Simulated assay, not measured.
Amino acid sequence: MHTRRLSTLALAAALLTPLVAACGGDDDSGVTTDDLDGRTFVATSFEPDGIVEGSEITIDFAGGGLSANAGCNVQNGGYSVDDGNLQVDTMTSTMMACDDALMAQDDRIVVLLSSSPSVTLDGDTLTIQGDSTLVLTER
């Protein structure tokens, strides 16, 4: 009886192991670097402070790098997606002077992208979420 019970448990473990492994993976969100590469997204909302009136926030993903423009300067850095989080290398930036609201929006984008935010992709809607939430749609 004891041998039969152990055999049954061993069989169950052998059958369930591939199923449990399939549920894991490197990227629980389903988003990969390849999903973003070659795509441009435009912000529809940036909470909690909103998008500066008259400005546009865009993020371009290409060849393992991203380029973000929040209305004033352009920030660039390498990126990857790891376990549902966007990982962005140290970003470089142009150094144009703009009005205070646009400069602050630039800063908010850099802070968000540099914070290892979560990233989800639902069709053509990309959501980047950390202390703030940026929702974008594909251009």
Rank of each mutant, 00 (worst) to 15 (best):
G50L: 14
Y79I: 09
M1P: 02
S132Y: 05
I59C: 06
D27I: 05
D106Q: 06
F41Q: 07
N76W: 09
P117M: 11
G54E: 06
D107E: 15
T92L: 12
S45D: 15
C23S: 05
G24K: 04
V20K: 00
D122Q: 05
D60F: 01
D107G: 06
I128C: 06
D89L: 13
L86A: 11
E56D: 06
L66H: 04
L121T: 07
V135A: 03
E47F: 02
S7V: 04
A21P: 00
N69V: 10
A70D: 02
S93R: 03
D27W: 05
G64C: 09
A43N: 07
S116R: 12
R139G: 08
V31H: 14
P117Y: 09
I51R: 10
A70W: 00
M103E: 11
D28V: 08
Q75C: 00
E53Y: 01
D26C: 00
L86R: 01
D60Y: 00
M103N: 02
V88P: 04
L6T: 14
I59N: 03
S45V: 10
M91G: 04
I57K: 00
D37C: 11
G65L: 05
L86Y: 09
A62T: 13
I109N: 05
E138W: 02
T133N: 01
S7W: 08
L126E: 08
L126S: 04
S29M: 09
I128E: 04
A97M: 15
D83C: 05
T8V: 14
G25H: 10
P48C: 10
L16D: 07
P18D: 08
A62E: 15
L121E: 08
A12M: 08
D27Y: 02
D131R: 07
T17N: 01
L9W: 12
G64H: 11
D89W: 06
N85R: 15
D99K: 10
M96H: 07
D37L: 10
A68W: 02
T133M: 00
Q75P: 00
T33D: 07
D99H: 10
T17P: 02
A13V: 11
G64Y: 14
D107Y: 01
G54A: 01
S80Q: 08
P117N: 10
I128P: 03
L6H: 13
T94M: 13
A70H: 07
D107M: 07
I109P: 03
C23A: 13
A43T: 12
M91V: 04
I109H: 04
V135F: 03
C72T: 00
A22T: 02
L6M: 13
G130V: 04
Q105L: 11
Q105V: 08
G84R: 00
E47A: 14
Q129K: 11
G25K: 09
S29Y: 12
I59K: 03
R108C: 02
Q129T: 13
V42Q: 10
R39Q: 15
A14G: 14
A14R: 01
V74L: 13
A22H: 07
E47Y: 00
L136M: 15
V52G: 02
L134Q: 08
D26E: 09
D60Q: 10
P18K: 04
L86W: 10
L134F: 06
G63H: 11
F46A: 07
